[in-house]
Design a protein around this nucleic acid. Sequence first.
DNA 1: ATAGCTGCAAATCATTTGCACGAAT
DNA 2: ATTCGTGCAAATGATTTGCAGCTAT
Lengths: 187, 187
Amino acid sequence: MQGPGVISSCNRKAWLRCCGGTPWAGSDPTAHNGGMPEQHPAINTREMVGSTVPQTISKATRNTRQRAEVLALLGEVDGFHTAQQLHRMLCDRDARVGLTTVYRTLQLLVEAGEIDSTRLPGGEQLFRQCSQSRHHHHLVCRSCGRTVEVAGPAVERWANQVAAEHGFTDVGHTLEIFGNCAACAAS
Amino acid sequence: MQGPGVISSCNRKAWLRCCGGTPWAGSDPTAHNGGMPEQHPAINTREMVGSTVPQTISKATRNTRQRAEVLALLGEVDGFHTAQQLHRMLCDRDARVGLTTVYRTLQLLVEAGEIDSTRLPGGEQLFRQCSQSRHHHHLVCRSCGRTVEVAGPAVERWANQVAAEHGFTDVGHTLEIFGNCAACAAS
DNA sequence: ATAGCTGCAAATCATTTGCACGAAT
DNA sequence: ATTCGTGCAAATGATTTGCAGCTAT
């Protein structure tokens, strides 16, 4: 049943089936990383910093403890995490925030443009406090989740141009690069 | 609750909530297209043809009627469709194939590399018989689903280079361009 | 014959929603 | 005081799986 190690969309939900680890663990059968201990928050790098992220949700009218908790956590962890993971982390630090609230807060933040969200090839939504306000993309390590924000002005231009050539307007795009980072390759 | 018309990840499952239409219908609040009649298979264009798609699933050992039906349908419709949509279409043409089988066949095809699959910003998986065997990307119309396969050698190089610069190996990437096609913009 | 298929029903799983209660303004 | 936020439980909806029966080979 296990498909080849390509970046295909097979093995769908299988990734998160192991609800404890990072969503990347074991995402690629060919990866060097078999299984890391549970509750191991992904170690990430942020190479293009730029602190522009406020400590309150602009759109929000009320500042509650749980929102503060979520915001605080987002400020501490780097890299992408699923709502479930973030919730688990909150539980681990006894932050007492309901899963529902985590989802709702995350959604608010995304709408407010204060956090980034992508999707795992498997379809699960990932969230990350983004340091850049401009449009950018991510280079994500398949095994540890280490993330690098990359800007690709050339790509933006190319995408817009291609779209224009075909008569498309209101163009937007999604682009993520996956790979194994040096650290993981070395280990 | 409605955010701006950007390609953000809000309004998640709301898209497919209306189980009858194409997943694109109403995907963008700012789109010109309100709601098209149900069961309206997306009209698509395929600009980079190249018939390399066999009529049998290579990996499969047995050729069953239902697989043939799925393959046939895939050969007729253009553009991306969800498994559910394809199944509905099969029902409409009295092809009598179970939803489960559609899912299983589609998965087989993806694993065999005979069809393409992407995800809607909302997370649902889309399938499309791809005409190019090489790696390529898609330019998808947000309202009608019209799809153009585009090759972006420069992007491939750029992605690989960026990844390499950061020490990443086994690089892969996903890239989709969304927009409103000329036809939809005109209507 | 017989290993694969198929499809129904039931199971998963992430995410959403209804609703009554608690908290921020 | 109100209105908004919270969280539990239940609902949703796409996708998967168990399993008994059917069918290509």
